[in-house]
Design a protein around this nucleic acid. Structure first.
Lengths: 251, 251
DNA sequence: ATTGAAGGGCGGAGGAGCAAACCTTTTCTT
DNA sequence: AAGAAAAGGTTTGCTCCTCCGCCCTTCAAT
């Protein structure tokens, strides 16, 4: 890059920082269409919108999303062509989440190349969620999380089902943190993680150990012990990272 | 909210979650123009681009940002009209960061209403940065951070200067975490925090105590003790939160 | 049979962004 | 002194995204 060592004369006073690379990195602005496909598609892939369930009517949904109906329809058309939703017409009809969901597509080269960044982002989001949930979670929210943890223990043999419940647990934790931004960040990063790991074999022993971590994590959150919750979360996430580091380049 | 208890018949299997509010929240995609003004404006307000320093030439900058030159010029025109940059023509000219920077504008109602969300986001980013930096920071990066901490201790009386060095410290920590996304998230959230707190009086005693936290935090990072770094960071951030909670509504 | 609620389909208006020129100013080189 | 080079400033036309409004088709409920 930078040809000759052209020293810029006067730089910032406090050291030789060069964060300009980050400041001048490409601005990538998604269109409303792309963003909508991402949002709905991720929610569906994560099981946040259950198979068979009905989406709000187009005229209502576009109002909620703050976009024009034609734009929403473009997104729905895309999701319908990829087999994630289907629509029926007439009164009582609507747009429904497809019941056998289409098979997941393998992650792109880009995704695989940036897997460590994704894990870093997840680390931040999950630590924040664990700490805030320890302070703010309501008893009924914790009960719901315990139920999900119980469901997880029944799903050691079926990774698709396991992953789905796992996502609900982590998203539920972010919900219990009562922070809308953290919740959105959590769904985004879980979507990226699902893309990364859904094609990887997970032996039942690994899942069982993961479950024990879930239990201890929820206990710490219930006690309001944020420090322990963060420590447990850290260990929990390192499991995934080690698996990925063993399988992907750039470890 | 939700008017009558309209039970949706069949929902997800594992509990009564309703994350649909988050899934169907408005998609608001910034334009390339807005995003560019934000990026450059924030970098300037945070002091990441030092007053008097020169931006890359328009033809180069628009290539780096991945936008058309006309779009970039719109952004530069906006920043020039707000007094953040100025341009000189001819060979050897260019676009420069204005030297006395224009006075900061008071935060908008929206900003003030969402201050807690901003703090939550900051918590996640800073915890992640602290932990990752403890694992990954290079000695020379830590030395640079120590220098900034030293500069901070000379600035107890001038909050503008203090805040600027403080930002450099936190952004530097994110840099030492070696995660591009975390770095960008850090600059974003520091920009939001600066908007929130720059109009608040900070007594020197508070800043002094903050400095002692900085020192202990950097020591923990240098030792690679991520757990302690996170605990110290947590305490450090709570200081700001308490101040804001005392002054702003919605505490 | 009628009605109402749903998806499906135009067509035009407005604006954002891009691309490729060309102009003007200033400084450096020859 | 002349010219080349490097910068910001300007103009034009095109494309694509998005919005808005209106109408059509389907089909269960009444």
């Amino acid at each position: 890059m930078a040809g000759s060592g052209r020293s810029e004369a006067r730089t910032a006073s406090a050291g030789s920082f060069a964060p300009s690379d980050a400041v001048f990195a490409p601005v990538r602005s998604q269109t409303a269409f792309e963003e909508t496909v991402d949002r709905l598609g991720t929610a569906i892939k994560l099981g946040l919108l259950a198979p068979g369930s009905r989406l709000p009517a187009e005229r209502e949904l576009c109002a909620r999303l703050g976009i024009a109906r034609s734009t929403l329809r473009q997104a729905l058309t895309a999701l319908s062509q990829s087999g994630h939703v289907f629509a029926t017409r007439g009164r009582g009809g609507g747009t429904f989440v497809a019941d056998p969901q289409p098979p997941a597509v393998p992650p792109s080269q880009q995704m695989l190349a940036r897997w460590r960044e994704t894990c870093d982002q997840r680390l931040a989001v999950e630590l924040g969620a664990a700490l805030l949930a320890s302070d703010r979670a309501l008893p009924e929210e914790l009960d719901a999380l315990d139920e999900i943890a119980a469901a997880l223990e029944q799903a050691l043999e079926d990774f698709a089902a396991y992953r789905q419940a796992d996502v609900l647990l982590h998203v539920g934790l972010a919900e219990a943190a009562h922070s809308a931004r953290l919740l959105r960040a959590m769904t985004e990063v879980q979507g990226a993680m699902t893309d990364l790991i859904s094609h990887i074999a997970h032996p039942p022993e690994v899942l069982a150990s993961s479950n024990s971590q879930h239990r201890r994590l929820l206990a710490a959150v219930r006690e309001g012990d944020g420090t322990r919750a963060m420590a447990l979360m850290r260990d929990h996430l390192q499991g995934t990272e080690h698996i990925l580091a063993g399988l992907l380049p750039g470890g």
